[in-house]
Design a protein around this nucleic acid. Structure first.
Length: 275
DNA sequence: AAAACCGCCTGTCGGC
DNA sequence: TGCCGACAGGCGGTTT
């Protein structure tokens, strides 16, 4: 489901709700959620503790406890992490995890496709979580410069889009924002990464920064399942220009938006604007 | 090295 | 109506 703007919105909405509440009980309904820990060990690590910080790196959420432990959660395609106060919320189908706090606050993970993952780590080292340890520079990081983007693209014959989706090169971009960034910069997603001109790299760099920061400002894209930590939808779907718009008219030139598979993912583009 | 392919799951949609 | 395949904000492991 979520890309960087959605995970960041979840982080912001949950942060002020869950920090400092004492954890009473943990309930794992889908054990395969747990990657490097069993239910008993997880429950023991959480009981009586409270969260001190909620961080994000790429599409990972990192919850710090008032111990040397941290929970690392990845929502993958359909994971929804929400916090609700009170006992009245009925259990949704596909609930994977409940963390109950002493004051009837509950943190809940609902995940229709069950791809979400949870690791328990005991220091700042994330070596056991490859995707986290190898995370590339994020679009809003100050070291995400046109020069950095150029270095990631040059010499590669793979489609530029597949490089944008590679989390080891750029952290946090996914299928929606890769397509939107390529549209804004007028670059065909299947163009070989190494063949981009300096001018195109500059435009792509600006487009990525702008798309990601605008999407955060609009609290993410609720195309299908995504909700934030309050269970609320985002609004960036109203601003999408190509993603999911096959057959629609391009707002810029009037051409019909096309779709093709690139790197195994549906890719939406305007054949006129993205020559 | 790097790129393609498959699997993980459940649900929805469109075509026949 | 129902059956069947394609597809879905992701990514890790395996094969080529």
């Amino acid at each position: 489901m979520p890309e960087l703007p959605e995970v960041e919105t979840v982080r912001r909405t949950l942060e002020h709700k869950i920090l400092g509440h004492k954890i009473q009980k943990t309930n794992v309904l889908y054990p395969r959620l747990l990657q490097n820990v069993d239910e008993t060990e997880l429950a023991d690590a959480l009981k009586g503790r409270y969260f001190t910080k909620l961080a994000r790196k790429g599409k990972y959420l990192i919850t710090h406890l008032d111990s040397d432990a941290k929970l690392v959660i990845h929502l993958r395609m359909t994971g929804q992490l929400t916090a609700t106060q009170g006992l009245e919320t009925p259990l949704e189908k596909h609930t994977s995890l409940q963390i109950h706090f002493e004051d009837e606050l509950e943190l809940r993970l609902v995940d229709q496709r069950k791809f979400a993952t949870l690791h328990l780590v005991y220091n700042s080292e994330f070596v056991g979580i490859k995707g986290l340890a190898q995370m590339g520079v994020e679009p809003l990081d100050e070291s995400f410069t046109p020069q950095y983007l150029k270095e990631q693209l040059e010499g590669r014959r793979a489609a530029v889009k597949s490089v944008l989706l590679d989390q080891r090169r750029i952290g946090g971009l996914g299928n929606i924002y890769a397509d939107e960034s390529l549209f804004r910069s007028g670059i065909f997603p299947g163009k070989p990464a190494g063949s981009l001109t300096i001018n195109e790299i500059q435009k792509l760099h600006t487009a990525i920064e702008n798309v990601i920061s605008e999407a955060i400002r609009h609290r993410g894209t609720s195309f299908r399942d995504y909700v934030d930590g309050d269970g609320q939808q985002g609004s960036f779907q109203a601003r999408l220009q190509v993603y999911g718009k096959e057959g629609d008219v391009c707002q810029v030139c009037g051409q019909i938006i096309a779709r093709m598979k690139i790197a195994g993912r549906s890719s939406y583009y305007c054949a006129d604007c993205q020559g």
